[in-house]
Amino acid sequence: MIPASFEYYRPKDMAGVIAILQEHGDEARVLAGGHSLIPMMKLRMAEVPHLIDMQDVGGLSDIEIGPDRVRIGAMVTQSDLIDDAALAKVAPILREAALQIADPQVRYMGTVGGNVANGDPGNDMPGLMQCLDATFVLIGPDGERAVAARDFYEAAYMTAREDEEVLTAVTIPLPKGGYAYEKQKRKIGDYATAAAAVQISKDQNGCSAASIAMTNLSDTPIFSEAAGAALVGTSVDDAALKAAVAAMLNDIDPTEDNRGPIAFKKYVAGVILRRAIERAWSRA
């Protein structure tokens, strides 16, 4: 419950943030909503001698809907995202997923950027962003760079972000077709036993495109290209669903914990993916 001491900084701009990160390297961490970092500090699982509160850094809390992309600032909270009616119209899967994350209090504070940058495989947004083929914008001492969500996650808590970089925004191509975020959890606020993000498109020949990613079934989110490919060109009938589930099971690598043993998690993953595809298809 009692975090170790730290120095607190509240810079007014990104240059100030980067300067502190450069000075202190991995001894410094940015604080967004604080709802993963502070719990870890309270358990002394994270030691952060230099904490950089991002709340006064401007320009990180906007949701911009462009003609072909959405740009979500890293400090947009889950509740900002849920409340944005225009966003719900163009990318409804974001709202559907955000409502399955944590609880009201946590959603007022927790941010999209913190969720995707955290690196905990339990977070829901990383898989969602892989499904949507999002791009993460990182800024560091040498300027900005973009990393695909599908390339960002290396292992639990290990991402492509360098110590001196800050994730400033997520950009998403406007999603097409039907969508679903389906999550099995033990209770409100729990990380998924298994969750699936699905976007699927339909034409006169059946399924024309499908994107599938899974949450908390490996030490990273899993974008299952093969599962999506198994649906394309089919009428998303039972055989296609079975093929997609089989392909997904081939890509995940769950571990046993108090959410259940490996065999159970694989079984649940199959059930959840099937439900997600069926719901997404019904909306396509």
Binding site: M1, Y8, R10, G34, I38, P39, L43
Partner: peptide, 28 residues
Amino acid sequence: DTSHCGACTVTINGKSVKSCTLFSAQAN
């Protein structure tokens, strides 16, 4: 001590917040 129970809930600038998961410095 894991931010679940909400017994510490207060309202900060119009938001329901668990006051166990916020440093007073942040609420300055």
